[in-house]
Design a protein around this nucleic acid. Sequence first.
DNA 1: GCACTGACTTGCAATATGCAAGTGACGTAG
DNA 2: CTACGTCACTTGCATATTGCAAGTCAGTGC
Lengths: 125, 125
Amino acid sequence: MAFSYRSPCPVASALDVVGDRWSLVVLRTIFAGCRTYGDLAGMSEGISTNILADRLARLEEFGLVTKTPYRMHPVRNEYRLTRAGADMLPILQALADWSLKHVPGRWAQPDWFARGRPADFYPAD
Amino acid sequence: MAFSYRSPCPVASALDVVGDRWSLVVLRTIFAGCRTYGDLAGMSEGISTNILADRLARLEEFGLVTKTPYRMHPVRNEYRLTRAGADMLPILQALADWSLKHVPGRWAQPDWFARGRPADFYPAD
DNA sequence: GCACTGACTTGCAATATGCAAGTGACGTAG
DNA sequence: CTACGTCACTTGCATATTGCAAGTCAGTGC
């Protein structure tokens, strides 16, 4: 149950948090403005709902997103970035830059993404 | 057998290449100067050798590293970064920056890493 | 009531990971 | 020239993670 990092290396540690096939894709989708489970489940990459639920729980545990009900009866939740989550933006940008340089036929990054800064996505508090 | 990207999204595509627990840790170790299989197998995170062999083959397939014999009798190979591999540096730096900000007790980045630029690691040709 | 939606959960097969042990080419000591 | 060691992997197998489909359950619209 107890989580532990593989080593004190900062690269390895970040990958202990988001080093899988989906975590960063989910975060990207939240950056893009999707906030509900349904919106996220509808992402174009086709994530299965059990994985989505698991990744959201994990991201919440690690303090990258918050889950807050925006309506009761029925409960509807909203997933939002924390500061730590917003601070992942440079990682996403670096990944996107690499793909645009080395993989043909990728989508161009929208301007809000390419030029965005983490602080632009910090929660309002 | 045929590989295909989940979507044309550049973030998702980069993760199709290196979105797992080990690929970027292996790359980090090559950046750090480890070039032989034995050096890589000895990394402090303790990768198992079957995974290491698989990741090196994958990184080679995707053109991020090259495997070249530096000695025959017996054959000893050297793994080196290609340009595409060296261009992963900003991703590693962004991951490290995030950890240093959000995970306590991580190692500081050595200067060659924090200040390095991909071109510093391009193959000599 | 009765279908419908949104947000998950569950079951289960397929795939990936981790550990330990094995293999084979070669080099070195005796 | 035989035994032992090293390097670079491979193999076997148990466990964990992923992916797909289907099910659940609260509430809403009609």
